[in-house]
Design a protein around this nucleic acid. Structure first.
Length: 664
DNA sequence: ATAGGGTTAG
C-alpha cells in the first residue's frame, strides 16, 4: 500500500518537477522534464500490478444505501457490463466491483475499462486511477480514457500530461491516435500544445475535426487569435463545436465583432454557441447587445442553461438592475416575460431553472393565469403539488384566477375551500377578489355579493370595482347602481368607481347621471389617468394616447386603421358605442372608439413589422370591450398573434423597466 | 466491444 502511494506521488511529480513539455524528433517522442531539460524514460515498473487475491474490495460488504439492483450469483461478463452502465452512485459501483472480483470476472479488460470510466464519471478519479494502475498493458483505449478523465479538471492537467508522457515512453509503446490527442490537448498550455500541434500535422491527425478543434482551442486559450484562425481556416470540415471555439477565441480576445461575424454564419446554433456570444457581449461591456441576443436565443427556441443566466445576470448587473442570486434572477426573468406577454419565453426560462422554489412556480402559474392560459396554469399547479412543493397564498391567486378565466366555477369554489382546509392558508382580500370575479363573470352576482358582505375584512375599491364590472357585464344595472352610488355617497369612490357608474348611467340612457358624474369627477379632482398603449418595434418603445397624432407615421397609421375598419365591418363587427361616456351622435361615438390608444398601437405594429410577427401591446388601463373584440378580429383577419396586456404603471417592476431602458 | 473537441466571477 505504501509502495503504491509512493509510486503515485512519483508519477504526479517525476524527478526534477512536473512534466510540462515534450519534443518530437524524427517521429520519436521524448519526454521533457521541466527544469532539467533532460530526456527521461518512464520504466515499466512505474505501473503497479495487483492480483485479485489481495484486492481490498474482494470481501467488501456495503451496509449503507442499498444497491438499486440486486447482484445475482450468476453474474456474467454481459450482465456485469450492463450493471456498470446503469450505475449512478459510487456505492452501487463499489458493490458491482466487489461482485466482479468475487466472480473472477476482473480479467475482462472491457469490464475493467468500464469500471475505470464509471469511477471517473462519478467524480472518483482516485478509484479510477488506482484501477488503471492495476491494469496490465493498458491499450490505447485505456490510456485515452484515463488521460481524458484527468483532462476534465484543471487541477489534474499536469497529471494528464504526465500520463501521456508515460504512455509514449512505455516499454510497449502505445501509440496515440486522434482520440488520445484531442483528450490531451485539453490539458495543454501553449507550449506542449504547439509541439502536439506539430505532431498532429505530421501524423495527419489535424484533419480530424476533434483534433483540429482542440488545437484551435489551445491557441484560443493562449490568446493567439492569428494562429487559431489559421487552424480554423485550414480545417477540412467545421463542426458547430469548432465554430463555437472560434467564436470563443474572438470573444475572449477583444474581437466581439469578428466573433459576431462567425456567429452569424452558423446555421444551427445550440445553447453553448448562444452562451458564448451572449457572454462575449456581456464581458465587452455591451449589456444591451447581450440581452438582445438572449431574447433572440429564446425566440429561436433554444432553452437557456445556468451559464446563460450567468451571462444575462452579468449584463443586468452592468445596468444596475439586479442584485440577487441565480434562481431569483431566473424567476425575475420568468416574471418579466410573463408580464410582457411572452409566455413561451417565460416557460423556456422556467424549465431551465434548476431547483425551482415556490416563487418560481408561482411566477409561472400566475403568468399563465393572467394571460388566460388556465389549462397550463392548472397543469403546472398539479405538477408542482406532485413534486411536493407547498403552495403559498400567491399560488392560489394564480389558481383561482385561472378558474375565473376558464369559467370553472365549481373547481374555483373547491380550490378556495381547500386553500383554507387543506393548506391552512387564510384567504386575503385578493382571493376574495378572485372569487368575486369568478362568480361575477359566471353571472352569479347574488352569490358574489353575499361573499363580499360576509368577508372577515372590509372590502376595498378593487373588490367593489370587480363586482361593479360584473354587474355591467351581465346588465345588472340596478345592483351596480346601488353599490356605486353608495360608494360615491360615502366618499369612498375613486375614478374607477365613477367611470363605472358613468358607464352604467350611459348604458341605461341616464345622460343626466353621466353629466353629474363628469362634474363630480372634475370637482373632486378624481382624475382618470389617460389611456396609454406602448409597443416595441426594432428595440424602441412607442407610446400612443387616444387620438394621438404625434407619431411621425400618424398618416400611415390612420390609413391602416380605416382599412382595418372596413375589413372589420365586412366581418360583421359593430362598434360597441354604448361604452362611450358622452351624449353624442352615434357616428361620433364610433370615431371616439376608433382611435383608442391600443388600436393606434396595433395599427402601427401592423405597418412596421413583418407579416406573421407577434404584436405585443402593453396598456396602462384596462382594455375596453370594443378594443378587445376588435383586437381578436384583427388578429384573425391579419393572421397575427396579438398580445394586449393590461399592466398598470404603478405596478411596473424592475425588469419591464429594464426592457424599456434597453430599448431607448 | 471499449475513447475525443466548444460556454461559467472581479
Amino acid at each position: 500500500m505504501a509502495a503504491r502511494e509512493q509510486r503515485g506521488r512519483l508519477i504526479q511529480r517525476p524527478r526534477g518537477g512536473a512534466v510540462v513539455g515534450r519534443t518530437t524528433s524524427g517521429g520519436t517522442v521524448h519526454l521533457v522534464v521541466a527544469g532539467t531539460n533532460q530526456k527521461r524514460t518512464v520504466c515499466d515498473d512505474d505501473v503497479t500490478h495487483t492480483s485479485n487475491s489481495d484486492h481490498p474490495l474482494r470481501h467488501h460488504r456495503f451496509t449503507s444505501a442499498p444497491p438499486p439492483t440486486t447482484i445475482t450469483t450468476t453474474l456474467t461478463d454481459d450482465s456485469a457490463a450492463n450493471l456498470i452502465d446503469k450505475t449512478r452512485t459510487l456505492n452501487h459501483l463499489l458493490e458491482i466491483h466487489a461482485a466482479i472480483l468475487r466472480h473472477g470476472l476482473h480479467q475482462n479488460p472491457i469490464l475493467n475499462f468500464k469500471l475505470q470510466r464509471s469511477y471517473a464519471s462519478l467524480g472518483h478519479l482516485d478509484h479510477s486511477t488506482s484501477l488503471f494502475r492495476r491494469t496490465h498493458n493498458p491499450n490505447v483505449f485505456f490510456w485515452t480514457s484515463i488521460i481524458h478523465a484527468h483532462a476534465l479538471h484543471a487541477a489534474h492537467h499536469p497529471h494528464a500530461l504526465s500520463l501521456y508522457a508515460q504512455m509514449l515512453s512505455n516499454a510497449d509503446a502505445v501509440r496515440p491516435n486522434a482520440f488520445t490527442l484531442s483528450s490531451i490537448l485539453k490539458s495543454c498550455p501553449i507550449e506542449p500544445g504547439r509541439a502536439l500541434h506539430g505532431h498532429a500535422l505530421k501524423m495527419g491527425f489535424i484533419c480530424d475535426v476533434y483534433v483540429g478543434t482542440a488545437v484551435l482551442d489551445v491557441y484560443a486559450r493562449a490568446g493567439d487569435v492569428v494562429a487559431a484562425r489559421k487552424v480554423f481556416d485550414e480545417m477540412p470540415e467545421r463542426s458547430l463545436v469548432c465554430l463555437t471555439a472560434m467564436i470563443t477565441c474572438y470573444a475572449k480576445n477583444g474581437g466581439v465583432d469578428e466573433a459576431r461575424a462567425v456567429f452569424d454564419g452558423v446555421g444551427e446554433r445550440d445553447v453553448v454557441c448562444w452562451n458564448v456570444m451572449i457572454d462575449g457581449y456581456a464581458q465587452r461591456g455591451l449589456p444591451g447587445e447581450a440581452l438582445g441576443m438572449f431574447r433572440r436565443m429564446l425566440a429561436a427556441k433554444v432553452r437557456p442553461t445556468e451559464v446563460t443566466f450567468l451571462a444575462v445576470l452579468s449584463a443586468c448587473a452592468q445596468i444596475g438592475a439586479l442584485e440577487c442570486g441565480s434562481v431569483h434572477v431566473a424567476t425575475a426573468l420568468v416574471d418579466m416575460y410573463c408580464k410582457c406577454g411572452s409566455l413561451e419565453d417565460a416557460r423556456m426560462v422556467f424549465d431551465g431553472i434548476k431547483g425551482k422554489d415556490v416563487v418560481a412556480w408561482n411566477s409561472m402559474i400566475v403568468g399563465y393565469a393572467m394571460h388566460g392560459f388556465s389549462k397550463d396554469a392548472m397543469e403546472l399547479f398539479a405538477r408542482m403539488r406532485k413534486l411536493g412543493v407547498w403552495p403559498t397564498d400567491i399560488t392560489f391567486i394564480g389558481v383561482l384566477s385561472a378558474c375565473s378565466h376558464a369559467g370553472l366555477v365549481t373547481e374555483g369554489r373547491n380550490f378556495f375551500k381547500s386553500m383554507k382546509d387543506e393548506y391552512q392558508i387564510g384567504p386575503k382580500i385578493e382571493h376574495y377578489g378572485c372569487m368575486v370575479d369568478l362568480l361575477g363573470r359566471a353571472g352569479l352576482l347574488d352569490e358574489a355579493y353575499e361573499l363580499v358582505k360576509n368577508m372577515e375584512m372590509d372590502p376595498d375599491l378593487i373588490l367593489w370595482g370587480t363586482l361593479l364590472a360584473a354587474c355591467r357585464l351581465h346588465g345588472r344595472y340596478e345592483m351596480g347602481k346601488q353599490i356605486a352610488e353608495w360608494l360615491v355617497r360615502s366618499g369612498l369612490a375613486n375614478s374607477g368607481t365613477c367611470t363605472l357608474l358613468s358607464n352604467i348611467y350611459a348604458a341605461t340612457g341616464n345622460w343626466d347621471g353621466v353629466a353629474k358624474m363628469r362634474t363630480l369627477m372634475k370637482d373632486s379632482g378624481v382624475q382618470k389617468e389617460p389611456g396609454c398603449s406602448s409597443i416595441e418595434v426594432n428595440n424602441r418603445v412607442y407610446e400612443f394616447l387616444a387620438g394621438d397624432m404625434k407619431h411621425p407615421k400618424s398618416k400611415d397609421i390612420y390609413v391602416m386603421l380605416e382599412e382595418l375598419n372596413m375589413l372589420l365591418k365586412a366581418h360583421g363587427y359593430t362598434p360597441q358605442t354604448d361604452i362611450v361616456l358622452h351624449d353624442i351622435r352615434e357616428e361620433d361615438k364610433e370615431r371616439v372608439l376608433g382611435v383608442h390608444s391600443e388600436k393606434l398601437a396595433i395599427a402601427f405594429g401592423l405597418i412596421s413589422t413583418k407579416p406573421g410577427t407577434t404584436i405585443r401591446i402593453v396598456k396602462n388601463l384596462r382594455v375596453c370591450v370594443d378594443c378587445h373584440t376588435v383586437t381578436k378580429l384583427i388578429s384573425k383577419i391579419t393572421d397575427r398573434k396579438i398580445i394586449l396586456k393590461y399592466w398598470p404603471r404603478n405596478l411596473e417592476s424592475v425588469l419591464p423597466k429594464l426592457i424599456h431602458r434597453l430599448s431607448n
